[in-house]
Structure formats: C-alpha cells, structure tokens
Design a protein around this nucleic acid. Structure first.
Lengths: 204, 204, 204, 204
DNA sequence: AATGAATGAGCATTCATTCAT
DNA sequence: TATGAATGAATGCTCATTCAT
C-alpha cells in the first residue's frame, strides 16, 4: 500500500473519485435527506464537476444503493471473519451486536443514511431487503439456530422471529442514537440489549 | 341510522372532504412514497379538485403530519383506556404489543406510511419523535417500571433501553410484514415477540 | 336627497355595496399593486363575500376600469363647470392644473392607482387613452387654442404638443409626490408648474 | 474581423445568451405586459430552454431590472459624454431632450418597457426611482442650476421642480408616441417641447 | 476522463371565477 | 341579493441528466 502510494503519479488512483463521491453523498444525504439533496451538492463536496458523477454512477439513486451495498458487504465480511474465531453462539451474537452498533456509531452520517434515508420508499426498502439485508438477517438466524442445536437457546422459538427481534432492537437503538439530542456512545448499548435478549432466548 | 341518512341534507357531512383527503393521501403516499406523490394524485383519489386540498391543508407536508397525528392520538387514547382494565404489568405490555400490531395490521396503507414514509427525513423524524412518539415510548416505559416496582421485572435493567428494545422489536415486525411477499396476519406475531421479551425481562 | 336618506330602510341603499367595493379595491390596488391584489382581499376590505363582487363587476379588470371611469368622469364634469365661470384662458389652465393636483392630492390611494396601477399594460393604457383621457387632453387643448385665438398664447406652438407638455408636467408631479418619502402638499405645486408653463407659452 | 470570426470557435461569444434573453424579454414584456409574460415565452423567443434563463438571471423580476439598469446606465454615460462638448446650458438641455427621445424612439419595445411596464408597481417604481432614475433627474437639475448661475435661466425657479417639469413633459411625449395609432418620429418632438420649456425658464 | 453549460420535464401552489344553496 | 366552498387552469422555478468540447 505504501509502495502503491509512493509510486502512484500525482494523478489520483483509479477509484479515488468514486470513493470521494460516495463519501460526499453520504454526508449530503445525511444532512439534507435524499430527496432534498442535489447531485450538484454532492459534486461540489466531492470536488468534481456535476457531469463527472455520471461517469461513476448511473443515477442519483444508484449512489444511494452503492452506499448501502458497500457498507453491508464490508460489514458482513468483517462479521463472518470475526465469528470464525468464536465458538459460543451467545458470544457470536454478542459480537454481531457489538459490530452492528460500533460501525454505525463510528460514522454518524453513514448511520443517518442507514437509519433514515434508506427507509424512504417501499421500492427501495424492497430492493434493500432483497439484497444484503436478507443476508445479514440470515447470518443472525444461522447463528441462533446453531445455538439452538447446541442446546444453548430455547428450541421452542421461531428463529426467523428471533432474528428480527434482535435486529429490530439494535436498529431502534441506532435510530434513537441519531435522533437523540444527548451525545453518548452507541456501541456500549449493545451489551444492555444483549442482556435482555440472551436472557429471553436462552434455554433454561 | 337510515333515518338519519334520509333526513340529512344531500350535502355531505362536515369533515367529509378532509377525511377523504387524508384517506386518499394515505393510500397515495403508501403506494408511491411521499416525495413521488403528487398533490394532484391525492386530489383525484379523494374525488376533489386540486385546489380543494388547500382548503383543508396548508401544504403537502401538513397532510403527512395530519395522518400521523390523527393515528397516534387515537392509538394512545385507546391504549390508555384498555390498560386501565388490566392489573398485571406483563399483561399490560402484551396488550400494548397486540394493539400496536393489530392497528398496523388492519390498514396496510397506513402501516406503510408509518413504517416507511414517516422515516424519510431526520427533520420529520425529529418532529415525529418529539410529538406523540415520545409519549408512546413513555407509556411502555412507565408500564415496565410499574412491573419493576411490583417485582415482576428485573430491577437491574434500564427501563429506557428496555422500552426501546420492545418498540424496536415490534417496529421491525411491522416493517417486515409490509415488505414481505408472503401475506400473513401481523397481530399474532406480537405473542412471539412477547414470549422472548418477557422471558428476557422477567425477574427470576 | 335628505328625504331619500331619512326614508331609506336600515338596508343600505342600492349601489352602496358597489361603492364599498370600489373604495376597497382602490385601497387594495394602491397598496399591493393590481396584479398582486386578490379579489378575496377586496371582498374582505369591502365587507362582502367573494362571490358578491361578481354581482357588481364582471371581472377584476372591470373594477380597475370602473375606478378610472368614475374618477375621470367626475373630474371632467367638475372641471367644465368651474371653467364656465372663468374668462381668462391663462386662469382657466391654472384652474385645470390646480384641480388636477388637488384631486390626486386628496386621496393618496386613488392617486397611486392613477399614477401607477393604471399604467400596467399597453392594453389598458390604450383603452385608458381612448376613453376619458383623450377627453381630458382635449379640454386642455381647447382651452389653449382659445387663448391662442385671444392672442394671449403664442400662435407658433402646436396646441397638441402643448397640451401634452402640460399634462406630462402635472403627471410627473403627481408621480413624484406618490413616490416621495417626504410628505408635502401636492396642490401648491401646480402654481410652480404653471409659472414655468405660462411663461413658456404666453405671447410676448 | 472576418479572420477573427472564421478562427473563433463555433461556440457563441460569452454573453451572447444573456443578451439574447434580455432582447427577447424586452420584446415579450412590451407585447404582453410583464405580468402576462411567461418565462417560457422569453426562452422560446431567445432560442434557449426555459432553465437556461435561470443560468443568467435569478428570477423573472431580475430580468426586468436588468433591462432597466443596462439602458439607464448607457444613457447616462452617453449623456455625460456628449454634454462635455457643449458649453451653453440651453444647448445642453436640448441635447438631453434629444437623446432622451432619440433613444426611446429607436427601440419601440424598449420604450414600451420603460414607459409602461416599469411603472407597474410602487415597489418597482421606488427601486427604479432610487436607482438610476434619480441620477438622471440630477443630471437635468445640475445643468439647469449651471444655467441659473450663468444667468441664462430664471433664478426665481426651483430647480427641482423645473427638472421634473422637463422630465415629465418628455416622458409624456414618449408615452403618447407609444400609444399613438399614428406612426411618427419621436425625436423631433424634443424641439417642440424645448421651445416651450426654454421660453418658460429663460431669464428675460 | 473531465467538464459545466444547457436542457426540459415536472409540480406545488394560487386565485379568479362559478354556482348550489 | 348574498354567500363561500369548490373549482381547475395556469406558471415560475428546480434539478437530474446529457453532451459538445
């Protein structure tokens, strides 16, 4: 990486502008809302011309999709990687919860886009749901089912519902954090949620 | 009733048009999204002229607010009323959860507006949060605290977090129901959620 | 007239509402401009319902015409009457100038409508020109020609141009008075104008 | 010049579109009146898209202001320049009068905008008055005062009133020319006006 | 690849006018 | 006569997208 940087010409590396546009869009969408954001604003913040945006993205909507895709993809990758080193399903779920809130807590603008802007239309929600989101829920469900088989989680519970309950609880924490006037750390909230959740789903 | 109708003048009852517009807007917003909905569409569905909408509402945004206000107000009223007849805090929370999902499950368009359209902008979310929503969360929290004092709920839990966990779980059920291709009854899901939740928060 | 008044019922005399609407319109047009004035505003100021305006006038434009017609008509009538008692053409023109500025100076709103609003469109200007205005200019011209025949005014001048010069000078005084921040009496300005004018047109 | 043209790119010169829009707007305003003119009409006549108008002007109103500003500015510049070569204050005023009517007489549409459209609202009149118009009146007044000091004009006259009398007379000539069905040259009328005016204000 | 001037479809809102009562 | 709720045509302006350079 250092070699690449030192060798690279003054011209920015390929993909640099694409990144800049995604970062700019995250900021602009978070502060003005998707529908009130102008492509020109994104271009200005990214330091490129309006037309340049269309060299990297087909439309304003595709930018929103890309923000989502990029983040969920990396979240799932990192999640899977970390879970490999953990054996206990309860610890696995704790890890998922922590990662979930850590990531959102680390980038407020990104969190706003995820918690607010991505919910703007059923159409988008459906695509959103169809894509990485389903995979994310699956990861939770699979982990829970693993725990059911291992006898650490109640076998009478519907794993699908359980995974939604956990996701919903975490999602609500993130949304509340965004909207809260008070400034507090989001990640630690994961422990409180897991306390309730694990107590609710653990086998006697 | 038939007598009343036959005697009443041909003129529609006061508030008829306002109601028609709110109903039409709920449908239109639900199907196209708030930002993609045209006031002309709402007027057409409501069976009035475009200009008539502005005799009852100051702006398109005020229509969205009115849909929210009217529904939350009636939900809280009904909730409080029903809770009066119940003593057990666990049963109270079950009742809240049931009402929550029953109401949304009874009107898919309204549910879409609540679960999707009302989340479209931080600005609206903040107002939304500030208004009836905060009151709704309070109702849950107060009920939980009542249970803590009565010794039925764990005293080591933060009531604020607990109320958000419950709300988040229910909210997620509603959102999933809307987005689901499968058609199922939403209200019964409340029991599954409460099974996990109450198990998680009940005192040993 | 007194008999008529004392005999009239509590109900306002016929024409009362028409008058009220014209007065209201003069005020509203003067303060907001013709195009920015709403018929509803006029109705409110006149103390009648919106629809009532249309019982007395065919359209908003007709109200403007009526304000003009009524005023010019009465101005010409009064002008002719007063001129009958004067023999000297110079005095006659002085009288016309005084009446012109007295009338406008007596009702600022009316003056604004005359000096500003009535000039808003060539279409209106043309009609305006065709109607009473031409008659008014004729009155000035005839008086001047009378003076030429009597030998008091220069015979080498074109009476048409002269009448426009006088009208233009008076008109400018009125417009300036309206736009001026300073509050001063308009009528006395007539003497200053006539000093210059008569000196310019009088025979040696 | 031909070389320059053949070498210059196909791209039109900078300011070309702005000029085209101003010219088109002058024509459209003159023929339909400011309030009845649609921005779309202006765009069509200028040969540009509707949106392009807003790349050069902030609003429809700004177009009107710009027409006025551009013309008055150039008129004052040219006026001052020509006056430098003249010594006699009487000749200077004659020159002003001639320029005034020559300019308006040379572009009927522009004249209509000046004599009619710019008078449409007190608000505009006030701005209009405050801006270049005041400067124009000052130019006349200063010239008259110069003549008073030189002993060629009556010292008993109020220079402010005198300048308005002259402006008003010229203004009326322009307005009448616009409204007249007959087609005649406007500029020569200046001499007739000045004949009366100078006779009226000259010292014995 | 990059630019940014140009495009033109799209829409919330206003308000003169009508008409059932 | 009088009302005022209802109408619906009309338009300034925005902004995502294109494309000549």
């Amino acid at each position: 990486m250092s070699a690449e940087r030192s060798l690279s010409s003054i011209r920015p590396p390929v993909g640099d502008k694409r990144e800049a546009i995604l970062r700019a869009a995250t900021q602009v969408f978070a502060r003005n809302g998707y529908f009130n954001s102008k492509v020109a604003d994104i271009a200005r913040v990214a330091g490129v011309a309006d037309g340049t945006v269309y060299l990297y993205f087909k439309s304003k909507e595709e930018i929103l999709h890309s923000i989502f895709d990029r983040s969920v993809e990396s979240a799932i990758l990192e999640g899977r990687k970390q879970l490999e080193t953990i054996a206990d399903p309860r610890e696995k779920l704790r890890r998922i919860a922590n990662l979930h809130l850590e990531r959102l807590g680390a980038d407020r603008d990104l969190a706003v886009v995820f918690q607010v802007e991505l919910r703007s239309s059923t159409k988008f929600m459906e695509e959103f749901s169809a894509a990485g989101f389903a995979e994310y829920l699956s990861l939770i469900r699979a982990t829970f089912e693993e725990g059911q088989r291992a006898g650490v989680f109640r076998k009478d519970l519907n794993a699908k519902v359980v995974s939604k309950v956990l996701f919903g609880a975490l999602d609500e924490m993130a949304t509340n954090w965004i909207l809260s006037k008070r400034r507090y750390k989001l990640a630690p909230v994961a422990d409180e949620v897991m306390d309730i959740f694990l107590n609710g789903v653990s086998a006697a």
